[in-house]
Amino acid sequence: MRTWRIAIEKVALDRSCEGARKSGGHWHSEGVPALYAAMTVELAVLEKFVHTEEVDEEPLVLVAIDLPDDPELGLDVAREDLPEGWDSLDDGGSAMLFGTAFLKKREHLYMRVPSVIVGEGVNLVINPAHHAYEQVKLSIARSFSFDPRMFKR
Protein backbone atom coordinates (compact mmCIF):
# COMPACT_ATOMS: atom_id res chain seq x y z
CA MET A 1 0.00 0.00 0.00
CA ARG A 2 1.41 3.35 -1.01
CA THR A 3 0.94 6.38 1.23
CA TRP A 4 2.36 9.89 1.09
CA ARG A 5 3.86 12.75 3.04
CA ILE A 6 5.47 16.09 2.34
CA ALA A 7 8.73 16.46 4.25
CA ILE A 8 11.77 18.68 4.54
CA GLU A 9 14.27 17.18 2.10
CA LYS A 10 17.20 16.77 4.51
CA VAL A 11 15.14 14.57 6.88
CA ALA A 12 12.69 13.04 4.41
CA LEU A 13 14.16 9.54 4.58
CA ASP A 14 14.87 9.48 8.32
CA ARG A 15 13.51 6.07 9.29
CA SER A 16 14.19 6.70 12.97
CA CYS A 17 11.51 9.42 13.11
CA GLU A 18 13.81 11.39 15.39
CA GLY A 19 12.14 14.75 14.75
CA ALA A 20 8.71 13.39 15.63
CA ARG A 21 10.11 11.67 18.72
CA LYS A 22 11.62 14.93 19.96
CA SER A 23 8.56 17.10 19.37
CA GLY A 24 5.52 14.86 19.73
CA GLY A 25 2.45 15.43 17.58
CA HIS A 26 -1.30 15.23 17.38
CA TRP A 27 -1.31 11.43 17.67
CA HIS A 28 1.80 10.82 19.80
CA SER A 29 3.58 12.20 22.82
CA GLU A 30 7.11 13.51 23.02
CA GLY A 31 9.62 10.68 23.40
CA VAL A 32 7.61 8.25 21.26
CA PRO A 33 8.57 7.97 17.57
CA ALA A 34 5.88 7.98 14.88
CA LEU A 35 5.66 8.48 11.14
CA TYR A 36 2.59 10.26 9.76
CA ALA A 37 1.28 9.69 6.25
CA ALA A 38 -1.83 10.39 4.18
CA MET A 39 -3.66 8.08 1.79
CA THR A 40 -3.53 10.67 -1.02
CA VAL A 41 -0.98 13.21 -2.20
CA GLU A 42 -3.61 15.95 -1.95
CA LEU A 43 -4.25 15.24 1.72
CA ALA A 44 -0.50 15.05 2.40
CA VAL A 45 -0.20 18.55 0.91
CA LEU A 46 -2.98 19.93 3.11
CA GLU A 47 -1.54 18.29 6.22
CA LYS A 48 1.86 19.90 5.60
CA PHE A 49 0.31 23.22 4.61
CA VAL A 50 -1.50 23.72 7.92
CA HIS A 51 1.86 23.34 9.69
CA THR A 52 3.78 25.67 7.35
CA GLU A 53 4.08 29.41 7.96
CA GLU A 54 5.76 30.72 4.81
CA VAL A 55 6.47 29.67 1.25
CA ASP A 56 10.28 30.03 1.61
CA GLU A 57 10.69 27.17 4.10
CA GLU A 58 13.52 24.66 3.61
CA PRO A 59 13.31 22.57 0.40
CA LEU A 60 10.44 20.09 0.50
CA VAL A 61 9.91 16.73 -1.20
CA LEU A 62 7.01 14.39 -1.83
CA VAL A 63 7.79 11.11 -0.07
CA ALA A 64 6.23 7.81 -1.09
CA ILE A 65 5.83 5.43 1.83
CA ASP A 66 5.25 1.85 0.75
CA LEU A 67 3.79 -0.41 3.42
CA PRO A 68 3.54 -4.20 3.24
CA ASP A 69 0.29 -5.34 1.59
CA ASP A 70 -0.84 -7.31 4.64
CA PRO A 71 -4.16 -5.99 6.00
CA GLU A 72 -3.46 -7.66 9.35
CA LEU A 73 -0.68 -5.11 9.95
CA GLY A 74 -3.13 -2.21 10.02
CA LEU A 75 -5.81 -1.04 12.41
CA ASP A 76 -8.76 0.95 11.06
CA VAL A 77 -10.09 3.28 13.73
CA ALA A 78 -13.65 4.45 13.19
CA ARG A 79 -14.59 8.00 14.12
CA GLU A 80 -16.94 6.73 16.83
CA ASP A 81 -14.10 4.78 18.44
CA LEU A 82 -11.93 7.87 18.89
CA PRO A 83 -11.90 9.80 22.16
CA GLU A 84 -14.07 12.87 22.50
CA GLY A 85 -12.28 15.97 21.26
CA TRP A 86 -9.76 14.09 19.09
CA ASP A 87 -10.46 16.49 16.21
CA SER A 88 -10.41 19.72 18.20
CA LEU A 89 -7.48 22.09 17.85
CA ASP A 90 -7.80 22.59 21.61
CA ASP A 91 -7.98 18.83 22.15
CA GLY A 92 -6.24 18.77 25.51
CA GLY A 93 -4.39 15.59 24.57
CA SER A 94 -7.06 12.94 23.97
CA ALA A 95 -5.77 12.12 20.46
CA MET A 96 -2.18 12.16 21.72
CA LEU A 97 -2.97 9.74 24.55
CA PHE A 98 -4.95 7.48 22.19
CA GLY A 99 -2.17 7.38 19.59
CA THR A 100 0.60 6.95 22.13
CA ALA A 101 -1.21 3.95 23.63
CA PHE A 102 -1.52 2.48 20.13
CA LEU A 103 2.19 2.99 19.43
CA LYS A 104 3.33 1.54 22.76
CA LYS A 105 1.30 -1.66 22.26
CA ARG A 106 3.21 -2.41 19.02
CA GLU A 107 0.39 -4.73 17.90
CA HIS A 108 -0.05 -3.05 14.48
CA LEU A 109 2.33 -1.39 12.09
CA TYR A 110 -0.09 1.46 11.46
CA MET A 111 -3.49 2.81 12.33
CA ARG A 112 -5.75 4.59 9.88
CA VAL A 113 -7.53 7.59 11.36
CA PRO A 114 -9.75 10.33 9.92
CA SER A 115 -8.08 13.61 9.01
CA VAL A 116 -8.85 16.59 11.24
CA ILE A 117 -8.63 18.86 8.19
CA VAL A 118 -10.85 16.86 5.83
CA GLY A 119 -13.05 14.48 7.80
CA GLU A 120 -13.50 12.14 4.83
CA GLY A 121 -9.75 11.88 4.35
CA VAL A 122 -7.64 9.16 5.92
CA ASN A 123 -4.26 9.56 7.58
CA LEU A 124 -1.95 6.90 8.94
CA VAL A 125 0.11 6.82 12.08
CA ILE A 126 2.95 4.40 11.38
CA ASN A 127 4.81 2.72 14.23
CA PRO A 128 8.59 2.52 13.69
CA ALA A 129 8.85 0.25 16.75
CA HIS A 130 6.72 -2.47 15.13
CA HIS A 131 8.60 -5.55 13.85
CA ALA A 132 7.27 -5.09 10.29
CA TYR A 133 8.63 -1.53 10.03
CA GLU A 134 11.80 -2.94 8.43
CA GLN A 135 9.60 -3.72 5.39
CA VAL A 136 8.44 -0.10 5.04
CA LYS A 137 10.10 1.65 2.10
CA LEU A 138 10.54 5.42 1.97
CA SER A 139 11.51 7.08 -1.29
CA ILE A 140 11.55 10.61 -2.61
CA ALA A 141 9.09 10.82 -5.49
CA ARG A 142 9.97 14.39 -6.47
CA SER A 143 10.73 17.83 -5.16
CA PHE A 144 7.73 19.76 -3.91
CA SER A 145 6.87 23.40 -3.41
CA PHE A 146 3.63 25.06 -2.47
CA ASP A 147 1.92 27.28 -4.98
CA PRO A 148 2.64 30.79 -3.60
CA ARG A 149 -1.04 31.68 -3.97
CA MET A 150 -1.78 29.34 -1.08
CA PHE A 151 -0.16 31.82 1.32
CA LYS A 152 -2.29 34.78 0.25
CA ARG A 153 -5.01 34.14 2.80
Rank of each mutant, 00 (worst) to 15 (best):
P114C: 00
P68Q: 06
W27P: 10
K48T: 13
G24Q: 11
R5Q: 09
K152R: 13
E80L: 06
V113Y: 11
L46F: 14
D69M: 03
H51E: 14
L73Q: 12
G24F: 11
E53R: 15
N123R: 11
E107D: 15
K152C: 00
A95L: 11
E42A: 08
Y133T: 01
V136C: 04
T40V: 05
S143A: 02
A7V: 00
L75F: 12
T40C: 02
E107H: 14
L82R: 13
G119W: 14
V45N: 07
A20G: 04
T40W: 14
R149M: 07
G121S: 02
L46Y: 15
I65E: 10
L67T: 02
V32W: 01
G25L: 07
R149S: 06
V41D: 10
G85A: 04
L124Q: 06
S145V: 03
D56C: 00
S23H: 15
E72D: 13
G119R: 13
V63P: 02
P114E: 09
R15W: 13
A7F: 05
F49C: 03
E58H: 08
F144G: 01
L62E: 12
A44N: 08
R153K: 13
I6Y: 02
A141I: 03
V116A: 04
R2M: 06
H131Q: 13
A141K: 12
H28T: 10
D69R: 09
A44F: 10
G74K: 12
K22S: 08
K104A: 00
T100V: 02
H108W: 15
S143I: 01
R142D: 14
A34Y: 01
L97P: 08
L73T: 09
P83C: 04
E42F: 09
I126G: 01
P33S: 03
L124I: 00
M96F: 11
P71S: 07
E120G: 07
S94G: 07
N123T: 05
V45F: 09
A141T: 04
I65N: 08
L75M: 10
E72S: 08
R5F: 09
L97H: 15
R2Q: 12
H108G: 00
S16Q: 10
K137E: 15
W27G: 04
M1Q: 12
V63D: 01
P59E: 09
Q135D: 15
H28N: 14
A37P: 06
M96K: 15
P59R: 07
L109H: 03
L109S: 05
D56R: 11
A44V: 01
L67A: 00
W4S: 00
R112V: 01
W27N: 10
L138S: 02
R142L: 02
P68K: 08
R112C: 00
G119H: 11
S16A: 05
G93N: 14
D90L: 10
E72L: 05
D76N: 11
E72Y: 13
E72Q: 12
A20I: 01
E58M: 04
D66K: 10
V41T: 09
E54S: 07
V116L: 02
S139F: 06
W27S: 04
G19E: 14
I65F: 08
N127I: 01
S145H: 13
I6K: 08
S23P: 03
P83T: 08
S143E: 15
A64N: 11
I8Q: 11
R153H: 12
V61W: 09
S16Y: 08
I6N: 03
V11F: 13
L67N: 07
L97G: 05
S88Q: 15
S115R: 09
L124P: 06
L103N: 03
E30I: 10
